[in-house]
């Protein structure tokens, strides 16, 4: 199943500068694995110890996958997946 994945500036070094790439998969993890096969190095930036890296937000359409199953969240044909860097910090 084909989905469109929007790639943030910081990760475009892995996609040859492309803002948006195609990938396939029925879950977020499968989409990430497919991305990794085509654009090596992406997975390590997105997944850590089997779950979504705290430095990134991943959305399926308008849904933050942290609230809808994480890496197991379902993805359907034609969905759009958006990756954004989490913007956070603190005094320590």
């Amino acid at each position: 199943m084909a989905v469109t994945v929007s790639i943030p500036t910081i990760l475009r070094t892995h996609t040859g500068g492309e803002k948006s790439v195609e990938a396939a998969g029925g879950t977020v993890l499968e989409v990430i694995d497919d991305l990794e096969a085509k654009h090596g190095g992406l997975k390590a930036r997105l997944v850590k110890d089997g779950s979504l890296h705290r430095f990134v937000n991943v959305y399926v359409n308008d849904e933050d996958v942290r609230f809808s199953g994480g890496l197991a969240a379902q993805v359907s044909d034609g969905d759009s997946v958006t990756i954004l860097p989490a913007v956070a910090g603190g005094m320590r």
Partner: peptide, 13 residues
């Protein structure tokens, strides 16, 4: 929080 900030993910999108 007085010691941490994080953009709300939906607002950020």
């Amino acid at each position: 929080s007085p010691t941490f900030y994080r953009f709300d993910s939906m607002e950020q999108l």
